[in-house]
Simulated assay, not measured.
Amino acid sequence: MTSFATPLQLGPLLLKNRVIMSSLTRDRNRVPGPLQVEYYTQRTGAGLILTEGTLIEPQAGIYSDEQVAGWKKIVDSVHAHNGHIFLQLWHVGRVAHPLLQDGRPNVAPSAIAAKGGKFRQLEGHPGFVTPTAIDDPEHYIALYKRAAERAKEAGFDGVELHSANGYLSHQFIDNTSNQRTDQWGGSAENRCRFPLRIIDEISGVFGNDRVGIKLSPSGGYNDMGMTEKDTTETFGYLIKELNARRIAYIQLTRYWPFRDPAQRGTYVDIFQWRNLINSEHTKFFANTEYDSEQGAKALKDGLADAIVFGRLYIANPDLAQRLINNQELNTNFNVKHFYGGDCVGYTDYPTYEQQHTVHA
């Protein structure tokens, strides 16, 4: 019977368990240093660590030699503690703001602004602005490839394409943000061309069995969401194509109303595509608001090959061990320190053992 403790063969990697640490963008990775080394090392009990979203061009990311060197120290420490780690490749597209990019415009497949938005770093908290339509998507595909090359230089075990949550790759997939009339828009095949081209290019760097992708079919966050019919058709096509490429895994996130205050998204059963993914070569990762019972059941029933945990990995650096040992989870999050800052709310959460140590 498959459980959290069951090892998982992921391409050439043997994961020690089926607990995956989600990408948790904590805004502390402009140039990774000792604090980030400690943070990721604390969580090496995970079968696989997915790094926080790491931009492929300025501001914070993996486009400079200094950043590569910083990430290499993290990777080396994770490996020294018998862990595996993938870098998540990220471009935010239209939900950036020019004032946070030295005046450079935000970009998107089409010049359509996302509704809403708020930038806590900017006075007055302005919302999203109209992006500049991308002239040549191949330029950005090349940036993803270069970022993958740098991730390989840093020693990462693989890379994940962030193609969810309303960021650039997702913006090409969704027909509400992509209204192009060229080969990059229109049909499901054309709208999926951008993420598939990226997958092909980064697979050429790492090998297809060291590449994953994150998808959020239900939309919602960052003003995303198609009709149920278009969603089923589009993601059905995309997942078939990804499975044919025999990548390491496809990560699907469930609908989360908390991230959809404007109710732009549509509840979609992510398991409707389960039979399109051949787990002999491509694993199915399930994400979003899983607790220990739900995750254990999904594994037991064969719905997912592994469960991805996000916020629970913030307050539980030893989450995998707690889940495997059926121990109480810490749900006391320091929300004020989710983003940015120092060690507070980042590396100061105790393990189960530390919580329950009795001092004489």
Rank of each mutant, 00 (worst) to 15 (best):
H281S: 14
L276T: 06
L319Q: 02
H281M: 08
F284H: 01
R274W: 10
N316R: 03
D301E: 15
D305L: 07
R274N: 07
N316C: 09
K283M: 07
I277C: 08
Y290W: 12
N275S: 15
D305T: 07
H281L: 09
R322L: 03
E289S: 14
N316A: 08
I277N: 02
L303R: 09
F284A: 03
A315H: 03
A306Y: 03
D269E: 12
L299K: 03
H281A: 11
D269P: 00
E289W: 11
L312G: 04
D318P: 04
S279V: 07
F271N: 10
G295E: 03
I314P: 01
E293S: 14
T288E: 15
F284T: 02
D269M: 10
E289T: 10
L299F: 10
Q294M: 13
S292V: 08
N316F: 06
V308L: 08
T266P: 02
A298H: 06
P317Y: 00
G295F: 09
N287Q: 09
Q321D: 15
L276R: 06
I307A: 05
D318V: 04
G295P: 05
Q272P: 04
A306N: 02
I277R: 04
I314G: 00
L299Y: 07
A296R: 09
N278Y: 13
V308K: 00
V268K: 00
G310W: 03
R311K: 14
V308R: 03
A306P: 00
K297M: 14
L299P: 00
G302I: 07
Y290P: 06
G310K: 06
Y290H: 10
N275W: 09
G302L: 13
I314C: 02
S279Q: 12
N275F: 11
L319S: 04
P317R: 01
E280W: 11
N316D: 10
G295A: 13
A304G: 08
T266D: 13
A306H: 03
G310A: 13
I270S: 02
Y290N: 03
Y313W: 15
V268H: 06
Q294E: 12
I307T: 02
E280T: 11
W273V: 01
Q294A: 10
G310L: 06
E293C: 11
R322W: 05
I307V: 14
N278H: 13
N287H: 12
T266C: 13
L299R: 04
D269N: 15
Q272E: 11
N278L: 06
T288V: 14
V308S: 05
T282V: 10
A306D: 02
Y290E: 06
W273P: 00
L312H: 08
N278K: 09
F285Y: 14
Y267L: 13
T288F: 12
G295M: 10
F271H: 13
V308T: 09
I270R: 00
F285L: 14
L319R: 00
F271G: 04
A306I: 04
F309E: 01
A320V: 04
A286E: 04
F271D: 09
Y290I: 05
N287G: 11
K297Q: 14
S279A: 14
S279I: 08
A286V: 02
F309W: 01
Y290D: 01
A306T: 05
V308M: 05
R322V: 06
A315Q: 04
A286D: 04
D291R: 07
K300D: 15
Q294H: 12
E280R: 12
